Simulated scan of single mutants.
Amino acid sequence: MIRITLELSSEVEEKLRESLVRHDATEMRQLLAEAFSTTVETLLKQASEPSPSNDEFEFIADQLAEEFAACVGSDAPMLSDYAVSRAGIYSN
């Protein structure tokens, strides 16, 4: 499932609310189409950005692991093999 969030300026949001009150479906469609068009352009630009190389990915993953370790501290309990297995994840 892909979730897309439209970020609207307060001006566009207000226009949408006014259109809703007036039951002006045409204006609402136009405002939403313009907002959606901008969002699609942003998504396409993001999709065209190159993926990180394996070395870049490893570097980022190491940084995240170090930041996580700094947040939880050295005395954080380890998860069991079962806890991270498919059966453990999907058990109640």
Rank of each mutant, 00 (worst) to 15 (best):
T5K: 12
S37D: 04
A61Q: 11
G73V: 05
F68Q: 10
A69N: 03
L8C: 00
E34L: 02
V12D: 12
E13Q: 14
T39S: 00
E66Q: 14
I60V: 04
L43T: 05
L44C: 02
M28L: 09
S10P: 08
T38E: 14
V72Q: 01
V12Q: 13
D24H: 07
R17H: 06
K45Y: 02
A70E: 14
E58V: 06
Q30R: 15
A25R: 12
K45A: 08
A65S: 12
S74E: 13
A65D: 13
T26C: 06
S10K: 12
S10F: 10
A35V: 03
E14V: 04
G73E: 00
L64S: 03
T38K: 14
T26A: 13
S9A: 05
L43G: 08
F68H: 11
E11S: 15
R29M: 09
R29K: 11
L6A: 02
L31N: 07
T39L: 00
N54E: 14
E67Y: 06
F59I: 09
P52S: 11
F57I: 05
E27M: 14
L6Y: 00
E14K: 15
D62A: 15
T5F: 06
E18L: 15
S53T: 15
Q63L: 13
E67G: 07
L20V: 08
T42E: 13
G73S: 09
D62L: 13
S19M: 11
E13W: 13
L20M: 13
F68N: 10
E14P: 00
L31W: 05
H23V: 10
N54V: 14
D55S: 14
V40D: 02
A33P: 01
A69W: 05
F68A: 12
S9C: 05
E56A: 12
P52L: 11
A33T: 01
I4C: 06
A76E: 01
S19G: 15
L44G: 05
L32V: 00
T39A: 02
S74T: 05
S53N: 09
L8D: 00
T42N: 09
T5V: 12
P50T: 06
Q46M: 06
H23A: 14
E49I: 06
E7D: 06
E11K: 15
N54R: 15
L64P: 01
K45S: 03
E27C: 05
I60N: 03
I4G: 04
R3I: 12
E7V: 07
V72I: 15
S10R: 13
T38R: 10
T26F: 10
A47K: 10
A47G: 07
Q30C: 05
E66G: 06
E7H: 06
T39H: 02
Q46R: 11
L31P: 08
F36E: 00
E41L: 09
S51R: 13
V12E: 07
G73P: 08
V21P: 02
S10G: 11
Q30P: 01
S9M: 08
H23I: 09
P50E: 03
S10T: 14
P52T: 12
E13D: 14
F59K: 15
I4T: 14
T38I: 04
T38G: 03
A70L: 10
L8V: 00
L31C: 07
V40M: 10
E49W: 05
G73Q: 01
V40Y: 01
S37E: 07
F68D: 09
L20H: 04
A35L: 04
E14S: 15
I60G: 03
R17N: 08
E13K: 09
